[in-house]
């Protein structure tokens, strides 16, 4: 029983990172109706920015208590990646705004490959150790469960960012504009919403969340490389579809479901005759199942094409 709880917790930590990345996918899909393949790579860049910052101002950061330096690293990386997300949208996606969705999808694949291979050129293809931004001490729990500080921080940060996002989308003018754009781009322009600004903002926000996800992920699995964003990125996308693409709570829910299922397959699959390596494929099996049985996702609405 304890072991089961332990697995469940691990899945929750893992899933909360997927949730963070999934939010970016879902927001961009919500406003632009396309899959931003490069999102997983912004996640990777988040981790590398944090590494760079740590190299650059390591001595200064060391003087500060770790939560403060973590916060600084998080905020700076998130800002940089937000800027990057906005630039990507400007250069690659904006010229295609009225083109078929397929063209935009292909461009997104191009952007994704471009970021990955530029990163490989800049940082090298080898795995790099990620600094301990969060102490690696374990909090021993009475029930025999082991939880590390890093895991707690991951969960807390994710929840804080989720709550923040919810406030932005539901309570601010920009959030209102995002929702309007997502429902009807033409009508929102007519109502005085500057769609370009809203789209830039959405990309910035999504990229910032991905960057945070990258740093937290690297804190749990402290070894980073230029292609680290592919797998979590894909799984996060699946999470977004699972929850109902375009739906923010859905993305979070989907992320948690995938994280937990993956960990459980890893932990218990063997007993059922499933090799633990299959956990890598779990997300995609879930994807195919959800698309067959409920293509709109758990919390999503059915969209109707106007004829």
């Amino acid at each position: 029983m304890d072991q089961f709880l332990q697995q469940l917790l691990n899945g929750l930590f893992q899933g909360s990172i997927y949730a963070l990345i999934a939010l970016g996918y879902t927001m961009v899909y919500g406003v632009l109706r396309f899959i931003n393949f490069a999102h997983g790579d912004v996640f990777m860049l988040g981790a590398f920015t944090a590494l760079g910052l740590h190299k650059l101002m390591g001595p200064t950061l060391a003087l500060l208590p770790w939560p403060v330096s973590l916060l600084i690293v998080l905020l700076v990386s998130m800002t940089l990646c937000a800027a990057l997300g906005i630039i990507i949208e400007r250069l690659a996606y904006r010229p295609l705004r009225d083109r078929p969705r397929l063209n935009v999808l292909i461009t997104a694949i191009g952007v994704s490959l471009f970021i990955e291979y530029s990163a490989q050129l800049l940082f090298g293809a080898t795995q790099r150790p990620f600094p301990d931004l969060i102490p690696r001490t374990a909090i021993a729990n009475a029930g025999g469960l082991t939880i590390s500080v890093a895991q707690v921080i991951v969960l807390v940060t994710t929840l804080a960012l989720l709550a923040g996002l919810r406030i932005v989308v539901m309570k601010t003018r920009m959030g209102l504009a995002m929702r309007a754009l997502s429902l009807n781009p033409t009508a929102s322009t007519l109502m005085g919403v500057n769609n370009s600004v809203v789209i830039s903002f959405t990309f910035g926000l999504g990229s910032a969340l991905a960057a945070a996800g990258g740093i937290l992920y690297a804190s749990l699995y402290p070894s980073i490389e230029p292609f680290m964003g592919i797998q979590p990125g894909l799984k996060a996308f699946v999470a977004a579809v699972l929850g109902g693409i375009g739906n923010i709570p859905g993305a979070a829910l989907g992320g948690l479901i995938i994280g937990v299922t993956e960990t459980l397959v890893k932990g218990y699959g063997q007993e059922l005759g499933i090799p633990s390596g299959y956990s890598e494929g779990v997300a995609f099996v879930l994807l195919i199942l959800i698309l067959v049985f409920k293509p709109s996702g758990i919390l999503g609405r059915v969209e109707r094409e106007k004829v």
Binding site: F34, I35, R101, L234, V285, L287, I288, L291, P295
Partner: peptide, 20 residues
Amino acid sequence: PSLRLRGDYLAIVTLGFNEI
């Protein structure tokens, strides 16, 4: 199952199948 879905989902399903 997947060809009943809209285009960009198919991209992901096939990518997922590749991984599976």
